[in-house]
Design a protein around this nucleic acid. Structure first.
Length: 602
DNA sequence: TTAGGGTTAG
């Protein structure tokens, strides 16, 4: 211009600068669908339908109003030219789909097709494109395949080594695609990493049920002096909660205090949950009392913790206090309080809360709430009422609900009813291992060995295997695993001798083995032998052997404790003067002085 | 405009 050369100005966005500014202001103010529609009319009238800046803002506004379909129809209507669109616009579009909660058909990944359109329009992706794309794809059923394509694309466009992109990929493989091992391959090759990288790996392991590997990674992080941040701690706490690693939870909490890691609410909630799930419900309550700010998650976590520990009265007290504190219970909070009632056998209270849900809070009960009610009736032996409840459910009862009823039939000796439900369930859901196990157990209880073996045969024909019982104990910060009947463990040295001693001592104290639990057609003497092999018994013998007198014994088990172990532990707690705490699949049994905190309520 | 996160029936 200086020299009088006429520089061609870039093609002016249609509509002109003033209209553009006016439209942007209108979009800022479009806080309702109605206003957004008015803005759309203005936008079209001013000829701004190909202005990328305006359109980007439009997408963002539509996204926050859950009206992405409007953005789509505006952007891709036939009379709009895409030649002026830019990468930013497509990124926003992809990101909006990553964060939207639109129901998604398996084969319909809008975000991915936007990516294709973007390339088709001759636009290059940038470093923001791939994290957004991966997040959007993680919602797909066939996420693995699509993610692989995104990964290849990222490499092709030169973003394969970008830390943000790699972290997204780690998260994608380990969490969305459910394949932490593929994530690990990438992780091992990464030249650089940050706490986000490690968190993505740790979180992936927790999600896929490999909490032991998650803890191992956290330890590796420590040994390499990579400082974790609060998210890494939250995820490691979740792993500890899963494993029942109380010592590690306490260590993590002291680490947070030592290193001045910000005690954000979500971190405190994670500690509450981990303490409760590791057996220290009193510690969780104490921390809860100290928390300056509590969300509904904090309340729900503690109520759920109390439920696990059979402390129904306290759970109810807390639920009422929560309401007084002005917190409106949500659907999850009701699951917790109903669970608390079920675990403590509080039928009337449970019924009260179930009807209060709809009457006072307009929350429609979901299948989980019905599940709690069925559990509530079943546990106390009101099986007819439980069945009646199932029949009145407005939705199809889930296999889990049937299994609760079946479990109760077994505990309450309702063999015919239990067998009938178990048979129906197996017909409906022939791919679940426990459906075979429970049915074969009813046959065994009825001494119908042929039918029992027939069921087991059908199970193996389907290629389904029984999940072995497994118990974990934490000793000096190490986790020891015991698998039912497994002799391979080094620490078994002396464990079997210990079992013999225990067996002798508790029999003298009046313990009678519960033979029904073995459920094998072998002679009585062998049966009693087989009982010793339950993983929780091995674990108890191990801890009795390795720890000084009176040290409490804490066990985490992957299945329900069997009636025989339950009876034996009551006796052991008395004879050896030890507190034994067993965390079942979902609750705690605290054996002390010959009794259990569950009051024999299963 | 980038990445990782807390409560949920057995």
């Amino acid at each position: 211009m200086k020299h009088g050369v006429l520089v061609p100005s870039p093609p002016a966005p249609s509509g002109g600068r003033a209209a553009e500014q006016a439209c942007l202001a209108l979009l800022d103010a479009s806080t309702s669908l109605h206003r957004l529609l008015q803005t759309t009319a203005f936008l079209l009238k001013s000829g701004l339908q190909s202005n990328p800046l305006v359109l980007t803002k439009f997408v963002a506004a539509a996204s926050s109003l859950h009206a992405l379909h409007l953005a789509h129809s505006l952007l891709f209507s036939p009379h709009v030219s895409t030649s002026l669109y830019d990468t930013f616009l497509f990124n926003t579009l992809i990101r909006s789909h990553a964060h939207s909660h639109l129901p998604l058909a398996a084969d319909n990944c809008r975000a991915f097709s936007y990516f294709s359109s973007m390339l088709h329009a001759g636009l290059l992706p940038n470093k923001f494109t791939f994290p957004f794309l991966l997040k959007a794809c993680s919602r797909l059923h066939n996420a693995g395949n699509v993610g692989f394509q995104v990964h290849a694309s990222a490499i092709k466009f030169g973003f394969g080594a970008n830390l943000f992109v790699q972290n997204s990929l780690i998260h994608f493989y380990s969490a969305a695609a459910g394949s932490p091992d593929s994530a690990l391959k990438l992780f091992d090759r990464m030249p650089q990493s940050n706490p986000v990288t490690w968190s993505a790996m740790i979180g992936g392991y927790v999600r896929s049920g490999s909490s032991d590997k998650a803890v191992a990674l956290f330890r590796e992080m420590q040994s390499r002096a990579i400082p974790p941040d609060e998210v890494t701690i939250i995820l490691s706490l979740a792993a500890c909660a899963d494993l029942g690693a109380l010592e590690l939870v306490r260590w993590l909490w002291s680490y947070v205090n030592r290193k001045n890691i910000p005690k954000v609410l979500s971190l405190c909630n994670a500690v509450l949950d981990a303490l409760a799930k590791c057996g220290d419900i009193d510690g969780a309550m104490a921390l809860f009392e100290q928390m300056p700010v509590r969300s509904i998650v904090s309340w729900t976590t503690v109520i759920d913790g109390l439920a696990m520990h059979s402390r129904g009265e306290e759970a109810i007290k807390l639920f009422e206090l929560m309401k007084c504190a002005g917190i409106v219970p949500d659907s999850v909070a009701f699951i917790s309080i109903l669970t608390a009632c079920a675990h403590a056998g509080m039928v009337n209270e449970g019924c009260h809360y179930f009807s209060s849900m709809t009457a006072d809070f307009s929350i429609e009960p979901q299948i989980e709430h019905y599940g709690c009610m069925v559990d509530l009736f079943s546990r106390v032996g009101m099986l007819e009422r439980g069945l009646d409840f199932v029949k009145k459910m407005p939705m199809e009862p889930s296999p889990m609900i049937w299994r609760m009823l079946i479990g109760a039939c077994r505990v309450h000796g309702r063999l015919e009813l239990g067998e009938r439900i178990a048979k129906d369930l197996l017909d409906k859901d022939p791919m679940h291992h426990s459906n075979y196990v429970v049915l074969s157990n009813f046959y065994a209880l009825k001494r119908q060995w042929d039918k029992k073996w027939e069921t087991r045969r059908a199970m193996s024909e389907h290629g389904i295997r029984k999940v072995p019982g497994c118990s974990l104990v934490e000793l000096d910060g190490e986790i020891y695993e015991f698998i039912a009947g497994d002799e391979s463990h080094l620490h078994y040295m002396g464990v079997y001798e210990m079992l013999e001693e225990i067996s002798l001592k508790i029999k003298l104290a009046g313990y009678v083995p519960v033979m029904e639990e073995v459920l094998l057609d072998i002679d009585e003497e062998d049966k009693e032998d087989a009982l010793h092999w339950h993983s929780e018994k091995l674990a108890v013998a191990f801890v009795l052997l390795k720890t000084p007198p009176r040290t409490p014994i804490k066990i985490v088990k992957n299945l329900r404790v069997c009636a025989d172990c339950h009876a034996a532990f009551k006796c052991i707690s008395n004879v050896y003067d030890r507190e034994i705490v067993v965390r079942d699949t979902n609750r705690f049994h605290r054996f002390k002085g010959g009794a259990c905190s569950c009051k024999d309520f299963w």
